[in-house]
Design a protein around this nucleic acid. Structure first.
Lengths: 139, 139
DNA sequence: CAATATCCTACCTTTTTAATAGTATTAATT
DNA sequence: AATTAATACTATTAAAAAGGTAGGATATTG
């Protein structure tokens, strides 16, 4: 249902969220930790930067950091930046059936958008924390 | 956001909803009215029949009819039958970030499913009725 | 200035979506 | 029973989107 870009983007942000205040992490480093393609992750990072989700510091010793805490980032922003499907308009022209179906599906898409806007990445962080706890028990 | 199959399927059902009780309409007839590919619409009709959304009468003089009124059909059923994306499971294995992201996105997908289950095709019919009214004014 | 990291453009491969064609099957009508 | 009108099935193809690669340009720190 969600493209890989969204999955990878969330893992990227999750990794950044573990960073100390004021520090940065490079894409190559993150890609290695997460076992993801460097080049593919680069493109995702650029998109997130353009959407003001992350800050960048270019050049040697640079990398990315979160522009705001996870609880202030909604899933809607992420999906909008990394999955172009959401904003392309549904045709509401043509025959009466076409118009009716177009308006109907548009209203559902709007409801879906509202749903995504209510979900923040704080929930993601909670899942992440849980996973790490359960690993702790093994040790 | 929704594939053509869903758009066409809804137009197909909308056309059937105008039918008198006990009568049937062939795919070729519907495809001509709606200016859709006969063969493509055939495949959609078969899927809807397998999902018990429509009844079929094969052979000469046959065709399709609604198996139940529009208000008893949810958008969830239609999307599930005509868009395979919704039921394929999201991976919740691998690294801790992968698991966390998997669980997070699965929960959102479930919320989306609940949203679709609350939407019935009665709303679609209302939009359709509106469109037809506004045409009436022109005449 | 050298090293390091992002940024940009173009390309390639695989998968999915959309559509088409031909044939087999079913059943009503004559 | 033959004819005809309809759905059902299988295979193929074309176009679009998703996923991934490659190389070099650009910026910035040390």
């Amino acid at each position: 249902m969600f493209p890989k870009k969204v999955h990878y983007g969330l893992r990227f942000l999750l990794t950044l969220s573990g960073l100390a205040e004021g520090s940065h992490l490079g894409v190559a480093e993150i890609a290695e930790r997460e076992r993801l393609s460097v080049k593919f992750l680069e493109a995702i990072a650029v998109a997130l930067r353009k959407g003001n989700i992350v800050n960048v510091r270019r050049g040697a010793g640079g990398g990315y950091s979160l522009a705001k805490p996870l609880k202030e980032i909604t899933l809607y922003e992420i999906v909008l930046l990394l999955d172009e499907k959401l904003d392309k308009t549904i045709a509401t022209e043509g025959s009466t059936t076409e118009k009716a179906v177009g308006r109907f599906l548009t209203s559902v898409r709007n409801d879906y958008g509202r749903l995504l806007r209510r979900v923040t990445l704080e929930k993601l962080r909670n899942y992440f924390a849980e996973e790490n706890e359960s690993i702790m028990y093994y040790i």
